[in-house]
């Protein structure tokens, strides 16, 4: 009984993590410019990975396995934070304009994202 409850909790956590991954991928596809894509990628995916790690930690047998999972998560957190910061800083230095609502093409399909150059 306790085992089935624990399995349910683990599956719930891992499913929530996978849902965050799916949301992050949709954001990477749908968002209009590089800054918003960084936002979708670095935050949603790391929250999803954290939920998956917590779900796997509940069934981890040994302390070494748990420590390794936490280490993987921390490394990915540091990687995403620094990579997102560096890409955003490089984009700002290159003069990439942040997307604004007026850049949205009126009543256009979702096929082509708006141009990143501010519309000229």
């Amino acid at each position: 009984m306790a085992d089935s409850i624990m399995d349910g909790v683990r599956l719930l956590l891992i499913t929530a993590g996978v849902a965050f991954f799916i949301i992050g991928s949709i954001g990477l596809i749908r968002f209009p410019d590089v800054y918003t894509r960084i936002h979708a990628l670095t935050k949603a995916d790391n929250l999803g990975l954290g939920l998956i790690v917590i779900g796997l930690l509940l069934g981890a047998g040994s302390l070494a396995t748990s420590a390794k999972l936490v280490l993987i998560w921390l490394l990915t957190l540091v990687a995403s934070a620094s990579a997102g910061y560096l890409v955003a800083r490089a984009a700002r230095r290159r003069g990439v304009k942040p997307w604004q609502a007026k850049d949205t093409p009126p009543a256009k399909g979702d096929d082509t994202p708006p141009p990143q150059s501010g519309g000229h």
């Binding site: 991954f21 990628l41 990975l49 141009p115």
Partner: peptide, 19 residues
């Protein structure tokens, strides 16, 4: 459209691959 967007997709590959 840009290089950075493609590299962000590569980072998505890394994170999702780890998961």
């Amino acid at each position: 459209p840009g290089f950075a967007d493609r590299m962000l997709a590569a980072q998505l590959l890394g994170t999702t691959g780890v998961a």
